[in-house]
Each structure stands twice: as C-alpha cells, then as structure tokens.
C-alpha cells in the first residue's frame, strides 16, 4: 500500500512537470538569419548589437541560433553559433559570453556571398526549431529580403510556420527601391504573404532602437 502511494505521488509529480519528450511550452527558441550577401555585410555590426541584446534577455533553457544566409543556406554548415542555455544561471552566463565572442569573431571575419538564399535559410530555421522542441519559436531575418538564387536552385515551396513568429529586421532599401519604392513594398508583401500563408505571424522591425519591438 505504501509503495502504491509513493508510485502515485511520483507519477503525479512527473505528470505535472514539464519536460520529457514533449515540447516545453515555456522555453523559447530564437533563430537569427544573417544576410551576408553583397554590401549587406556592412550592416552586420547592427546585427551583433541585436544578438547581444537577445543574449542578455534569454533565460536558462532557451535556445539561440545564429546562421548566415549565403548562396545555399539550407544547410547546418551555415550555422554560425548555437546554444541551449544551461538550467543554472551561472553556466548560462558563461555560455552567453562564449556565444557573444563567437559572433564577434564572425562579424569581424565574414566574407560576402555571391547569392542570397533566404528561403533555404528559413527552411533550415524551421527544421531546427521544430527539432529543438521549444515552446515559442522566433525566426529573425536580418536581411534586405532580396532573394538572389543561384541557377537551378528551386525554392518555390510553401513553408509550414504554425506557431512561428517571423520578423524581418533592418530591411534596408536598395538603390532600385529608391527608384521604384513599389519594388520594396512588393518584396516585403511577398514575404509577408508566404509567412502568413504558412500559418506564421509576420512582423517587420526597421527601427532597431525600439527595444520593445525585439521582445520575445
């Protein structure tokens, strides 16, 4: 009888606790895609600030990945740094410092890519966050959203973005956008449509000084 009570108690405790094989509803996953094509690499200093800001506010248990967008982004090789923060705050702080150092090195030594495979990067982000089993999934795209694919690359598929929040950061206006602003608006609207059709939530943040806009 006593063993039965202990078993019931243990089962009830495990039943209440979050974790195991299921997605943890309270852990957040952030996947930041950095556009490294052409002259956009000059903007990566801003991206570093955003990464540091996000690092400061991520909590133990959260997952943070920074990946680059280059000619073929649907690959784990494009992941610059990734971390799942330790449950202990002191260990998590150590991980954050190492992460920030890795990003600083990357921003210093980054080389421009010839093409811009945003769709591939986004697909990789979806795959990764789904696998990480986090509760809240955020994908930040630090890019001008101008996709430029190599020949024979096919990216005309629909995304499955249920439960994802996708935000485009620092969507700079290109020279051609200045000539014809409709191009910029269409580009943004096209990405918004793809994300919303996929079931995700779309947002765009160009004023990076607004700390509340980046809140997770």
């Amino acid at each position: 009888m006593r063993r039965l009570w202990i078993a019931v108690l243990v089962l009830s405790l495990f039943g209440c606790s979050d974790g195991g094989g299921q997605a943890n509803n309270y852990q957040r996953g952030v996947y930041l895609l950095l556009d490294t094509s052409g002259t956009y690499t000059e903007e990566l200093v801003k991206a570093k600030q955003i990464i540091n800001y996000l690092l400061a506010y991520l909590e133990p248990g959260d997952t943070f990945v920074v990946a680059r967008i280059d000619s073929g982004s649907f690959s784990e090789k494009d992941i610059v740094a990734k971390v799942t923060l330790d449950a202990r705050p002191s260990a998590a702080n150590r991980q954050k410092r190492e992460f920030a150092s890795t990003i600083a090195d990357f921003v210093t030594n980054v080389k421009s890519s010839a093409y811009t495979d945003i769709s591939g990067g986004l697909l990789q982000a979806i795959e990764y966050l789904n696998e990480a089993r986090v509760g809240k999934k955020h994908i930040y795209i630090f890019s001008d959203l101008k996709e430029d694919l190599p020949a024979n690359f096919k990216r005309d598929f629909d995304f499955t973005l249920d439960g994802f929040v996708v935000k485009a950061l620092n969507v700079t206006k290109l020279r051609s956008d200045n000539v014809n602003p409709v191009e910029y608006l269409e580009r943004v609207a096209d990405w918004q449509a793809r994300v919303v059709q996929g079931g995700g939530t779309w947002g765009i943040i160009n004023d990076l000084d607004r700390a509340d806009a980046l809140a997770l």
């Binding site: 405790l13 209440c16 606790s17 979050d18 974790g19 943890n24 309270y26 852990q27 909590e59 133990p60 248990g61 923060l85 449950a87 202990r88 705050p89 002191s90 998590a92």
Partner: peptide, 13 residues
C-alpha cells in the same frame, strides 16, 4: 535557488 535546482524546468507552469 535556480542555481541549485535549475531555472529551466517547471511544475504546472
């Protein structure tokens, strides 16, 4: 206490 028992796991939210 989060340093001792971890800050990631939750019970009933």
């Amino acid at each position: 206490m989060s340093e001792m028992v971890g800050a990631a796991s939750r019970v009933g939210g």
